[in-house]
Design a protein around this nucleic acid. Structure first.
Lengths: 237, 237
DNA sequence: CGCACGGTTCGGCGGGCACCGAAGTGTGGC
DNA sequence: GCCACACTTCGGTGCCCGCCGAACCGTGCG
């Protein structure tokens, strides 16, 4: 047995955690970056609370989820951005199938279109909103996508000028491409993507719709995006 | 049910393909970027040929492997670089466990150390060799890692001057970070990483050791790396 | 204090799937 | 044409695991 074989059991175990439909539904739901209670997830996934409790135990033990107990509630969220990226990458790999299918009901279609317009993807912006921002940054020479994916010096200046501080943390990259699964194109993730999303929500550029991942750009947000990045309102609809 | 639920079955199915230890061993073996026969994989994984045949059927049907039939042989390889990246990412997530464990036998230790010195990771260089090249590129301002991961204009010029053409293909990024699972640091992947690895093998900078993924830097390779990137021999040992 | 409620534990059930060996199919060599 | 060989197909077996309901535990509210 060569050395790499040692990785096979671990790889299979990790994949096995995601390989269950109920657990997969939980992970996708948690991609909104927030903490859910066990009960919410059970209802969301359509299984008994007892069943979901066992699933959460496995996901936490496997290091995919972090838990936080408050009173009689058990809150769980994705352990870190690495896990979020992993789930996102796996989902993107599947997306070609999903894109072929069209939503059936009007309600699902409407919810889907709101999600397609703009949403959060763990801690950064995605959907057409995320793409529009990423494209605008690229078009103005602030983000370089032709030889990889990195902010330029001008890009660092733009964040500074916009009053969005970029604090480098540990080993998380400042900028990273995240493949959007509705638009099928890369958008800005990493520290810069998270900071931008945070700022957009804090400054009221956009607001969450209900309790979903979908977000809506406000009129103040439209003005700010137009002023700072010359993004037209048409690109956001 | 919201629109994102549609992704859960697909996600679970994809993960399920990797969630079996035998299939995981196949995928890891195929990370060397070459095509293996069904028999080789069966022996490698330690299962009956019939068992492995079924596994290959699933992996091919799931789009993870591409097959090529030649006479009475069935060759399979990873379907594309996206799949390779996915497996690599999953393996990297598991690596913290593997790093804690030390190889037991001397033979495994020796094989492991050759792998750690230098190896191919799908179609680019990894191990200390890959890290040394990536660090050298970064140190000379040819590759930018501080604000993401992208070649600089000077970097494009270096590839051109070195006689390594970079043909942009479809949507595959020119430069991408791949997390090394022995060194725990990012190294150059993507079109540029593949071209560099290809050139290194073609120009005799390094040669494969036996039929393994491990590669050894030749004396001609040491001279070339020293001349082009000022990499000292010490960094390769 | 007692009830309601969120979460967990346990036993039991059922389905799915990885495995093997044996028989079958097709290719290539002698 | 025959045999060797690589791979595949087919039954059969056994294990693993996801599911539920029921009983249990702790928190918080009235």
């Amino acid at each position: 047995m060569t050395e790499k074989d040692a990785g096979a059991p671990g790889l299979a175990r990790l994949a096995g955690l995601i390989a269950d439909e109920t657990r997969a539904a939980c992970l996708l739901a948690l991609l909104d970056g927030r903490a859910w209670t066990a009960g919410e997830l059970a209802r969301h996934a359509g299984v008994a609370a007892s069943t979901l409790s066992e699933h959460l135990g496995k996901l936490v033990a496997g290091g995919l989820l972090a838990e936080e107990r408050q009173g009689r509630h058990r809150y769980v969220r994705l352990a870190d951005d690495r896990v979020a990226q992993l789930v996102e990458d796996l989902a993107a790999q599947v997306a070609p199938d999903a894109a072929a299918r069209r939503p059936r009901t009007l309600r699902a279609s409407s919810a889907g279109s709101a999600m397609a317009r703009g949403r959060t993807c763990y801690d950064h912006l995605a959907g057409r909103l995320g793409i529009a921002v990423t494209d605008a940054l690229t078009g103005r020479g602030l983000l370089r996508q032709d030889t990889g994916f990195a902010l330029t010096d001008a890009g660092l200046g733009w964040f500074d000028a916009a009053g969005i501080p970029l604090r480098p943390t540990g080993r998380r990259p400042l900028a990273r491409a995240c493949l959007d699964w509705t638009e099928r194109r890369p958008h800005l993730a990493g520290v810069a993507g998270a900071a931008l999303c945070r700022h957009a929500l804090d400054a009221g550029w956009c607001v969450r719709i209900g309790s979903e991942r979908a977000v809506k750009v406000t009129s103040a947000g439209e003005r700010a995006l137009s002023r700072l990045l010359d993004i037209g309102a048409a690109a956001l609809r």
